[in-house]
Amino acid sequence: MKSILRAWLYLLPALLFLGVFLVYPLVDVMIYSVEEGYNSTSGASFGVGLYNFAYVLRDPFFLMALRNTVLLVAITVPLSTGIALLISLGLASVKKLRHLFQTIYFLPYVTNTLAVGLVFMILFKKTPYTDGLANLFLRIFGAGPVDFIDGPYWAKMFVLCFYTIWVVMPFKILILTSALASVNDDYYKVARIDATPRWRVFTRITLPMISPMLFYLIVTGFIGAFKAYSDAVALFGVNLNAAEMNTIVGYVYDMLYGDSGGYPSYAAAAALILFAIVLTVTTVNLMVSRKHVFYD
């Protein structure tokens, strides 16, 4: 009895912390989301209902943010994971330069997001004086110039995806190279003795052996991409709605603090919709992984 009491005592600081910063806000968001006609100055509301969700789901700005976010997720998660896997496989086969490469690829990870975003903007922005580095490249192939920052939608989407992939790459490469290095060499030895073709070695040994790490990267990749916001701000500035580049988290922020903000109920509803989407995707991920992930 006494030991149980003591256990709770030890847990208390963590529970308090979690309660104040996690549980309370979560509950609060849920309450906000169902309070109709909430007025932030008076703190009063008309009643309880699902109107906020209906409003948000019909709001063209939310739909735009939703479309951008889904596009971003659908493009960047598979691409970044696939490219990271290819690079890691390459790194695993050139043993000598591995350390150098690992440092280079890891640089973006320790560099500030906004700083990187500004550099990207300079690379891609078209100004009266210069077309930007990216357009110099395009010119070589006889195309362009395209304004990637203030130009057509697809160009801006391309830059955002490119940037997102580039930023998440180092972490993925780091995880995957260590996953590859941890595969016991005996598997490859047996495969060689068995005259196993390369592709079969990859699908039958390498892929199953690193599947837990791959799965981890995909799940966290999805979650991370759904939460995208600061990247878009770094590239396109604060007024994302005007740039047609808003994301769901951006929409939530705008509803709270933006120029047209002051609607915590709409923000809460949008946040909960995002939560539902992420929860669904993660659950699907988990279900798929049951079949395909190999835990040793």
């Binding site: 016991n184 005996d186 598997y187 030895k189 047996v190 003795i193 068995d194 005259a195 196993t196 073709p197 079969r200 039958r204 040994i205 199953p208 052996m209 190999f294 040793d296």
Partner: peptide, 25 residues
């Protein structure tokens, strides 16, 4: 024929598939 301490059986495959593996190559 090679056998290791950690068996090094192909992950995810059944016993039969493991034994067939070298033949399929």
């Amino acid at each position: 024929g090679l056998v290791f301490q950690n068996y090094a059986l192909y992950p995810h495959l059944t016993v039969l598939q493991n034994i067939l593996f070298p033949l399929q190559n």
